[in-house]
């Protein structure tokens, strides 16, 4: 594993134009190859933080992506390297056909016609939606829409995948397929969610946000087994779910009770 920082955030503050203060001093370091879950109650500022990762919002403080400061001159490069997937796939899929949506990023990058076609078919194959190129997103199932939304950024060959609420509204099978898709995608990942079991399946590290700040940061087991911490920040594990230790290669093993 490399140890170069993918994301460096220092002292980030942000207030929306209407005066709502959403971020109150966020410091975060994510290394290349990590999979980090960001959890926290509604309104904690998670989505706002994500929008800073590719310069859609710009607050006070410092944000660097793969060493590049997020500022106007670097936005093109940063937006190519950061694949940001929004919560509602109907926002992400705005083109008349699935093909056009997946081709949107590569075309903006200025790739040639052959390269675009290649990137689109690769991305659709990765998410298992081959053959649906000509469909309108309106006629896809919700699970298919979510996967198409991921394809729209995978086609840009990003180095960092950022997902807002990836598992919301998915039925159990779609959720499992989505989880498997994420585990196949071996790049740096940041997931924002309330779905703690989903974090447990997909992340090694968890960051807890509340009130515009990061209030805890640690490995997935120690955070998810800290019931008091979770409770204090409006989070709960589903009844009957117990996190167990995991080995670094991703296989779960029984907690050592000796």
């Amino acid at each position: 594993m490399h140890h170069r920082p993918a994301v460096e955030i220092k002292g980030l503050h942000y207030a929306y134009p209407d005066g709502t203060v959403a971020l109150r001093g966020v410091d975060l370091l994510v290394e290349e190859g990590e999979a980090v879950g960001i959890v926290g109650p509604n309104g904690a500022g998670k989505s706002t933080l994500l929008l800073h990762l590719n310069g859609i919002l710009a607050g006070r403080g410092e944000v660097r992506i793969f060493g590049l400061p997020v500022e106007k001159a670097n936005l093109r490069e940063i937006r190519r390297r950061v694949g940001l997937v929004f919560q509602d796939p109907d926002d992400q899929l705005f083109s008349p056909t699935v093909f056009d949506d997946v081709a949107f990023g590569p075309l903006n990058m200025g790739l040639s016609r052959e390269e675009v076609a290649e990137a689109v078919s690769c991305a659709l194959e990765l998410v298992g939606l081959e053959g649906l190129e000509k469909r309108s997103a309106y006629h896809l199932s919700y699970g298919q829409k979510k996967r198409a939304a991921i394809a729209t950024v995978l086609s840009m060959n990003p180095d960092l995948l950022v997902l807002d609420e990836p598992s919301s509204n998915l039925d159990p099978r779609a959720r499992r397929e989505f989880s498997e898709l994420l585990q196949r995608t071996r790049i740096t990942k940041i997931l924002v969610t309330h779905d703690l079991p989903f974090v447990f399946e997909n992340c090694e590290r968890v960051v807890v946000m509340d009130g515009g700040r990061i209030v805890a940061d640690g490995d997935v087991f120690s955070i998810l087994s800290n019931e008091e911490l979770l409770k204090k920040h409006g989070l709960e594990l589903p009844y009957g779910f117990y996190p167990m230790h995991r080995e670094m290669d991703g296989h779960r093993v029984e907690e050592d009770r000796g």
Binding site: N54, L107, N108
Partner: peptide, 16 residues
């Protein structure tokens, strides 16, 4: 619009 910006939209619509 944010989703368009995130994928490198810069004012011109390109299609194949």
């Amino acid at each position: 619009y944010a989703a368009m910006l995130a994928r490198g939209y810069g004012g011109g619509m390109h299609t194949l």
